[in-house]
């Protein structure tokens, strides 16, 4: 208010006495009531009434229709069957509900009174007499309970009430922070000598079977019991790798002995940005693209980041082959897979 007042007194005419009365808008009051067509023309009112009735009747038909549709068009398990059932239920329910809605609003707008009435606000506090009676009643209650005299009782009550929330809070917080062992982010299921198995069918893969340009999505070759355990899904989520067979001449990054085998390289499939599975591999450019934020890694060059928000290259899994020619892991990843976290140190 003061903002609008200050400039008006400054730029207004020198004679400020008039302005003092006009710096607030006058209450325009309730606008003049204009009769609607339905107020003046009985024919129009009858027509409106008819429309509202028709809308309600439509809604009744829709309700009946939805019941008929529910029993007559059952989803029989086939795609067209499910679709027909959903469609008929949806259409009839829409008619049923929209009929009521449109009718109610049309009724209110065209036939019910549209005069505006002013109802002044009541004062919020109760009258002083009522408040005095209430205070007296409260004081009487405190005295009757004798809480001020019986100190031990008061302490016991407060103590029990204060302690009770622990019975709920401790288990709740304890289950939320289920596992505070952050060191498991550093390790995956991969061990020296563990075979690589195809995802999802779990077959070990021979190095000789891969042709240049091949890509295989791999996971640790573990027993069926492990795969059926509850922890498998999170262990698999950490351990999945992408196996790429390149022409050995195309590999530009320095490969230490035992890190790749005959042009076959294995990199973690978990993006170092926010952990999406990176799997869009272009065999012509050897680029691996993350579908979430377009981080691009160069598989031929140590999975270095060539584009996008990722900060680190994908960790490489050292691989070789066993006596039978199957691909095996030489070790776990040398660094934690996936995105950064507080305890990761970098």
């Amino acid at each position: 208010m003061s903002d609008s007042k200050t400039p008006s007194t400054e730029i207004g005419p020198v004679d400020g006495s008039e302005l003092a009365t006009t710096d607030r808008f006058a209450d325009p009051g309730v606008p003049e009531h204009k009769p609607r067509l339905t107020d003046t023309d009985p024919k129009a009112a009858a027509r409106s009434e008819r429309i509202v009735t028709i809308l309600f009747v439509l809604s009744v038909l829709g309700t009946i229709g939805s019941l008929v549709a529910y029993f007559a068009v059952r989803p029989d398990g086939t795609v067209p069957g499910v679709r027909a059932s959903t469609l008929w239920l949806g259409v009839t329910l829409a008619i049923s509900l929209l009929g009521i809605g449109f009718a109610a609003i049309h009724w209110a707008k065209s036939l019910m009174s549209n005069r505006e009435y002013v109802d002044e606000r009541h004062p919020i506090p109760s009258s002083p007499e009522v408040r005095e009676v209430a205070v007296v009643a409260l004081q009487q209650g405190v005295e009757d309970s004798g809480i001020a005299r019986r100190g031990v009782l008061k302490g016991a009550m407060l103590g029990s009430l204060a302690l009770f929330p622990l019975a709920v809070a401790v288990p709740l917080i304890s289950s939320v922070g289920d596992d505070w062992n952050v060191s498991k982010f550093r390790h995956t299921l991969w061990r020296k000598g563990m075979r690589l198995a195809t995802d999802p069918d779990g077959r070990p893969l021979k190095a000789a079977d891969l042709t240049v340009g091949s890509v295989a999505h791999m996971m640790p070759d573990v027993s069926t019991e492990v795969r059926e355990s509850g922890e498998w899904i999170s262990e698999k989520a950490k351990a999945v790798i992408l196996l790429v067979k390149l022409d050995p001449e195309d590999i530009r990054s320095e490969q230490r002995p035992g890190s790749s085998y005959d042009g076959i390289v294995a990199y973690s499939k978990i993006c170092t940005h926010v952990g999406c599975p990176v799997a869009l591999y272009d065999q012509q450019t050897h680029h691996l693209l993350c579908p979430c934020h377009q981080s691009t890694f160069d598989v031929a060059d140590g999975a270095k980041v060539v584009f996008g928000p990722a900060k680190r290259p994908l960790p490489q899994l050292p691989i070789s082959v066993d006596d039978e020619g199957y691909l095996i892991a030489e070790d776990d990843f040398a660094e934690p897979i996936g995105p950064s976290y507080w305890e990761r140190l970098r």
């Binding site: 893969l205 891969l210 890509v215 591999y281 065999q283």
Partner: peptide, 14 residues
Amino acid sequence: GPGPMPVFNDAVIT
């Protein structure tokens, strides 16, 4: 594996 698409030979996908 035409163009940019990698190869999925019978060893990778039977």
